[in-house]
Design a protein around this nucleic acid. Sequence first.
DNA 1: AACCCTCGAGGTCA
DNA 2: CTCGAGGGTT
Length: 695
Amino acid sequence: MTSPVEKARLEHQKLGADIAAHDQRYYQDDAPTITDADYDALRRRYEALEAEFPELRTADSASLRVGAAPAAKFGKIKHAVPMLSLSNVFSDEDVAEFVARIRRFLGLDAAAELTFTAEPKIDGLSCALRYENGQLVSAATRGDGFEGEDVTANVRTIGEIPHQLTGAHLPAICEVRGEIYMSHADFAALNARQSAAGEKLFANPRNAAAGSLRQLDPAITAARPLKFFAYAWGELEPRPAQSQFDMVQWFAKCGLPVNPLMQRCTNEAQMLAVFRAIEAIRASLGYDIDGVVYKIDDLTLQERLGFVSRSPRWATAHKFPAERARTRLLDIEIQVGRTGVLTPVAKLAPVNVGGVVVSNATLHNEDEIRRKDIRIGDMVEVQRAGDVIPQITGSVAAERPSDSQPFVFPHICPACGSAATREIDDKGNADVAYRCTGGLICPAQAIERLRHFASRLAFDIEGLGDKQLELFYTKGLIRNPADIFTLEARDAASLTKIKNFEGFGDLSVKNLFAAIEARRSISLNRFIYALGIRHIGEVNAKRLARHFGSFEALRSTAKAAFAAESEGRKELISIEGIGPIVAEALVEFIHEPHNEAVLDALLAQLHLEPMEVASTASPVAGKTVVFTGALERMSRDEAKAMAERLGAKTSGSVSKKTDLVVAGPGAGSKLTQAQTLGIKVISEDEWLDMVGGNG
DNA sequence: AACCCTCGAGGTCA
DNA sequence: CTCGAGGGTT
């Protein structure tokens, strides 16, 4: 006689298999064999069993929730290995420079052979698929490169993506990366369906793919013909192959679709030949591509080359030239940015450029307008730089209206009426940009600053976007960042409640307040970034946070740094990446009386946490390392990059602050200096052992 | 020359 | 959200 649990287990198993089969027929074959009601009944029974016997829940049962009620929004998935983007090149010379830089970095001479792969760059969305023991467990978009959106349920509906990898001896964890895209034929068919159903049409296959993947209801994604090519990986141990090319071949063996056009090249001429060949067949491929990607084939070399900021040194994208079109320049509008910069934006008669309708384009600044001799009323040439950003390349002299006048750049801010000037620097050079001098009284700047404050890399407050901020600003509810954190209390005491505003309801207000509450604790680096100080972006904010450790320390140093020659100023400038100009901007910001008041108000509302921790706890993290003498196994640049990747700082000279000296043959004064100061000296080999670079 | 900062555009979905 | 240009900083 079987126990109730056993009985339940059997039934649960059978139901699971049935539901999976129905999902397959419904989502992927688009040919369900039972009614929705019957299907729902199966699912309810399945979930009831799990509720009664929680031990029945498996990793698999989650996968059967595809058709369940759509989640309110996507969850987040942290990428175990960051998903970065590629640098771009546009000309043959750029390709030569790309190859030359790699040779330099690796310390190779021109004769040494270097193998690359070349493959079409698919114009879609990158996606990371995580397989555990061969089973698809999650899928994430790229997001900001560190954290993406959880689109697992949607990705499971893509027929080309296997739920289970084929083959024996699969790595326990295998994170495959590639591109989700839509073919031309499928795109045309989808738009025909949309049109027949009276729905709006998609502008191009890329947007159709993006829109389809971001559907909250996987059933809609399932009805969209998405495809996939695998071309990269994240966490994957052990490596089944030693080269880029072989890795992709291995993906194919596992049952993943890979692009058939990838090939190996051993010199620049071959790379360019592949580029031209792919360009020639671009139109007949049946899917959009926007260039060719070159990667160093040897994975060991890839590791040695590493990364510069957000892209690998060992790969680049060779982009096709942009498409162009002509249209009329109707007007030039002036926008005011967060820092008060006045930016001219061209208002264009809408024109189709390579698949999207363009009606605006930035003109950057006064000089740019003069250089290109662009006037209102002109017929202008428009292209999309990198197939994305609309750009005016020039005007057509023959079609200029006879009465046209050169554009006169305004000298007052259109938002607040204050004077706008081009600052003159020490050397007497005028800034390219006009800046509104209205500062704090300028509403345009205030709103832009608030927008920056609430933006994703800063406080990341959901429900407090452009629209809401603008509304709250005009209503006088939020005039500076500190107001955000008193909003709820003031709203409670107020008679005109936010929930009565147009576009708001009980729920959205509740969510907004919750989102604000959740950000009362914030990391120091985000806080510094959020202040929107000129020249202090994401990276410099982290540097400051790391150096000072607390906001009070930063603030008191900045205060002590008021005089140009002061100790405080010296300390600021000693921080890597911070120079006189950045220091000046920081000091000025901290000293400004209004900013002081806002900072005090803000700090009273917040709990600052230490900086978000860098990933690896390596033995050299936080240490200052000096390389001296000849290095035999790697170039100087490479050694420095390696040290920095592990969280160490590098320096060119030995001082009291140096923690470690790596000395090669021929080391001279620096070695002596290290010995005098009693600083630890190791050989290149010992260094590699220490940081795990030996085997 | 490498890297960083700022700003802008367009599109989709909620 | 994604991308790129342009200019400033180091």
